[in-house]
Design a protein around this nucleic acid. Structure first.
Lengths: 229, 229
DNA sequence: ACCTGAACACCGTTCAAGT
DNA sequence: ACCTGAACACCGTTCAAGT
């Protein structure tokens, strides 16, 4: 049960060991057992090697996750973006979300300043460029990117966490339970929404929110254009 | 070194054990050693008890964190909000952020649908109410809340993660390193921003982003008011 | 150079037993 | 009822040794 014929798990890896072999094994773990199961130890088991053997090819788990992100973003279709700057900005922001949606394993490093995939930088470039062509300064474009980034991180984190919640056990959330037993005189809005809350928050509202947010960011920035230095 | 005089760590707890004693011990751990150090085992050590003793008073770690959130939001000053609905909505959203900023230990459950503190629900109620008084329907108000919530979660997660990064080691991030060595012809915007990136993203842009986002959400929703059913 | 074995320093939590 | 002891099933990673 510990050492098998040859080595290399169920897929039969030929060569010694490489970043490529590690990445493909990791993708296999992700497909078969989900993001939560992807650990250095689990991955080593999949490859029938010692956990420490991995550290000869990747610096740490963070780097492994970045390799996976790089792989995913390389294989992501690169669509033609709209000409109209405002639409292009929205499309780029949507794309940022869509690429990361394919990478649920990123959750533990999503908020890190060390998150980066060169193969995904074109999305960022497109977003900034569109913002500038909308009439923003470079600094304003960077701020717009940052606001969109924060929103995107929030959407992704909340989504995967609520997925986990529903996967593990489909009991009502604490929120719903609390809403149902609230004094209506002090919480009129919340009690009115109590029954509808689950339905309203389970829906995927990323796109709608993004649209409003993008419009807000552009309009506010453009309203003050030329106002200060 | 293992069992001391009496029990109860350095503070000397009198009674048997209670949620209250656990919470104050947890707050002590947080103050002295930071959110990362708050584990059930560490907390038990602080109280000079077995880790399992905790489970007689709180169901699991999640519940402990909610107790801490409840405590923090109870002791949070409850300011008078502006009369003007739009300003009130902004103030409530800002407050949501401010309360959670006092709870960096929440990070691991921030995105959970089971996150709730009754003592913080008035912020949510105020936010929804302000949105309705701005002219939105209840459903639109809920959507607005959700978009603001996602943005807030993103801001908080990114902030604490980047704090951790800087605390551990003040090396340049992968982003900065990559931006410095980018082909300028394919990445003109990013290369122009390369040097300024660190400065622009380290700044706390929550408030500015929030303002633009709130305006965007309200304007977009109000623009279509009465358009559909 | 590439990999193993053993260990370090942790996690949250279940289960059976003690008083 | 309240708490302990031992265990389960894990983590990421360092360090010294093997070939």
């Amino acid at each position: 049960m510990k050492s098998r014929t040859g080595r290399g798990g169920r897929a039969g890896r030929p060569g010694p060991l490489s970043q490529e072999a590690i990445v493909t094994a990791a993708l296999r773990v992700l497909d078969d057992h989900g993001p939560d199961q992807l650990s250095m130890r689990r991955l080593a088991r999949e490859l029938s090697i010692t956990p420490m053997a991995l550290y000869h090819h990747v610096r740490d788990k963070h780097e492994l996750l970045l390799l996976l992100l790089a792989y995913k973003s390389r294989s992501f279709p690169r669509p033609v973006l709209p000409d109209e700057p405002r639409e292009r900005l929205l499309a780029a922001a949507q794309l940022l979300h869509d690429v990361l949606t394919e990478c649920p394993f990123l959750d533990e490093v999503l908020a890190s300043p060390d998150l980066l995939a060169v193969s995904a930088l074109w999305v960022m470039e497109a977003l900034l460029d569109a913002a500038v062509e909308c009439g923003l300064t470079l600094e304003q474009a960077a701020q717009t990117h940052q606001a969109i980034w924060h929103y995107t991180v929030g959407v992704l984190m909340v989504r995967t966490t609520s997925r986990q919640h529903h996967a593990e056990l489909s009991r009502p959330t604490r929120r719903e339970q609390a809403f149902a037993t609230l004094p209506p005189d002090t919480f009129p809005r919340l009690t009115s929404l109590a029954g509808r809350w689950a339905g309203l928050t389970t829906r995927d509202t990323h796109r709608e929110g993004l649209q409003d947010i993008v419009d807000g960011l552009l309009d506010q920035h453009l309203a003050y254009r030329g106002g200060s230095a």
